[in-house]
Amino acid sequence: MTITAQELQQLRPQEVGAPTFCDHLFEYLTVAGQSRYDESVTQLEHGLQCAHLAEQAGFDSAAQIAALLHDIGHLILDEHAGHDDFLDDDLSHEVVGARLLTRWFGAEIGQPVALHVPAKRYLVATEPGYVSGLSEASVRSLEVQGGPMTAQEIELFTNRPYFKLAVDLRRWDDQGKVPDAGTPPLSHWRHAIIERALSD
């Protein structure tokens, strides 16, 4: 029987052991990740592409795991293109995901995830033309997420720990929506996840 979102949120790596925790996490991602937030790729494909981009850019395993799992909040909230109204309200998937990831792996992974939506708002406000490269779903969600940052919000954002990594994560998020892109499988990140879960 497939693990549920509720069961996943109750998992503690230290209690079940990091390898078993990783097995359950991958089982959940494999099943729930077949849904689509954007029409171009599944949510699992999107996470794999983002993690691969982080790896190709030379970032460490913490950044790669953050990239792989940055949208886990969408899965937990059951936000996907199968619901016509799924972009009508902002359920703060980044906060939901970050709370879970911080508990599992610490702030080094949780905080960039918490900031990847503000990073989109930051880039829209500070980079002319950035918005034109966003996917249709990202453009639609931008409005309910608050639109471009104000000058005051920019100052606060750029003083946050991990804001630079959050901006990188946001760029991988934007780029990781290529149909049929070749990426390593989930198992490629198994050792890193087990290591990080054990070290927290």
Rank of each mutant, 00 (worst) to 15 (best):
S92Q: 13
D78R: 15
A67G: 10
D88F: 01
D85Y: 01
A66M: 08
L77Q: 12
A63H: 14
F59P: 00
F59E: 11
D88R: 07
D78G: 12
I72C: 11
G82I: 07
A67W: 12
H80E: 04
D85G: 02
L68K: 06
D60V: 09
A66Q: 06
D90V: 00
D84E: 13
H70C: 15
A81W: 00
A67R: 10
I65W: 01
A67I: 14
H83W: 12
D85C: 01
D84C: 05
D78W: 03
H74T: 02
I76M: 03
A63M: 15
G82F: 03
A62V: 08
A66E: 05
A81G: 07
D90E: 05
I72K: 02
D90S: 04
D90L: 00
L68N: 07
S61Q: 13
D88T: 04
L69F: 07
H74V: 01
G82K: 02
A81D: 00
D71P: 11
L87E: 02
L75F: 02
L87I: 01
H70I: 13
H83E: 11
L68W: 08
I72R: 01
L77S: 03
D84P: 14
L69A: 09
I65G: 00
F59T: 01
D89Y: 05
D78K: 15
D88K: 03
E79D: 05
S92R: 14
A66P: 06
G73C: 08
D78S: 13
L68T: 07
L75I: 05
L91C: 07
L77M: 09
S92I: 00
A66C: 09
D88S: 07
A63L: 11
I65D: 01
L69I: 09
L69D: 04
A67H: 11
L75E: 02
Q64S: 06
H80M: 08
A67Y: 12
L75W: 02
D71A: 15
I76K: 00
H83Y: 12
H80F: 05
A66Y: 04
D88V: 02
L69V: 08
L69K: 04
I72P: 06
S92D: 05
A62F: 04
A62W: 02
A81R: 11
Q64Y: 10
F59R: 15
I72E: 03
A62Y: 04
H70R: 10
I72A: 03
S92F: 09
A63Y: 09
A62R: 13
G82Y: 01
H74Y: 14
D89G: 00
I65F: 00
D84G: 07
A67P: 03
D90C: 06
F59Q: 12
L91T: 10
S92G: 00
H80I: 11
D60H: 14
A62T: 14
H74N: 15
L75S: 03
H80D: 15
L68R: 06
A62L: 13
I76C: 02
L77K: 09
D60W: 12
D60F: 13
G73S: 09
A66H: 03
L87V: 03
A63E: 12
G73H: 05
S61H: 11
L69S: 06
A66S: 14
H80A: 13
G73V: 08
H70Y: 07
A66V: 10
